[in-house]
């Protein structure tokens, strides 16, 4: 992947993540983690090579199909990216509206997800009225509201206390156990060591390590 200014953000990448896997993507700042997320979301297009997510071939996918690709995944962004002028309930409901879910289903499922992230009592609050951790939990609820095949979490523990961090990771593991693919992008080595999951290490745009639960499988 080469940016228009000539910077090669990712090169020589050969990575396959199976359905239902739990993978940590780790690396220093500038290693290519963000670019990888952008490629998966088709925010950027691969300049060379192939990239496949579910049934979508991203290197030749037309723009009009981007919304359909993004509906297959739930993303928790590091900066949460919540709608500032929508309430917690509306933020979660919006993801379901996008896929044309019935209002009756939305009314039934949004409280369920808010309960799951322990934010039932904040349903009517706006994001600016929430703490960082609460905002992140809203982002989690929104990410899983559509029952996506894959959940991508970008630095999910960066803005929460250790206890909440543990709870969020437990939530991701539960999601993974439901058969969903989970990709966690982080630079928190403690987190990676704690959970013993497949870990792909990026450095200067290349994969420099790929360990499966602590066992190196490919480098």
């Amino acid at each position: 992947m080469v940016y228009p200014n000539g910077t090669a953000a990712l090169s020589g990448i050969n990575l396959k993540i199976e359905d239902g896997e739990f993978v940590f993507i780790v690396g220093k700042s500038g290693a290519g983690k963000t670019t990888l997320t952008k490629l998966l979301l088709r925010e950027e297009k691969v300049t060379d090579g192939k990239l496949r997510v579910d049934d979508f071939r991203l290197e030749k996918m037309p723009k009009r199909k981007i919304p359909h690709l993004r509906r297959t995944m739930g993303v928790v962004f590091q900066d949460f990216r919540l709608f500032p002028n929508k309430t917690v309930y509306e933020n979660v409901a919006f993801a379901m509206r996008v896929i044309g879910e019935k209002s009756s289903v939305i009314k039934q499922r949004v409280p369920y997800f808010l309960n799951l992230v322990e934010l039932t009592d904040k349903a009517g609050s706006f994001p600016t009225e929430l703490s960082g951790g609460e905002q992140q939990r809203v982002a989690f609820a929104r990410a899983i509201a559509n029952n996506p095949k894959m959940v991508i979490a970008d630095e999910p523990t960066g803005n929460v206390d250790p206890e909440m961090s543990r709870d969020l990771m437990d939530l991701l593991i539960r999601i993974n156990k439901l058969g969903k693919t989970v990709i966690v992008i982080t630079h928190d080595h403690y987190l990676v060591e704690q959970f013993k999951k497949r870990t792909v290490t990026l450095d200067e745009g290349r994969i420099v390590g790929d360990r499966n639960g602590g066992v190196a499988v490919e480098a």
């Binding site: 919304p67 993303v75 996008v98």
Partner: peptide, 8 residues
């Protein structure tokens, strides 16, 4: 944000 969530 709407686009990231998959809004057409």
């Amino acid at each position: 944000i709407m686009r990231y969530i998959g809004a057409t």
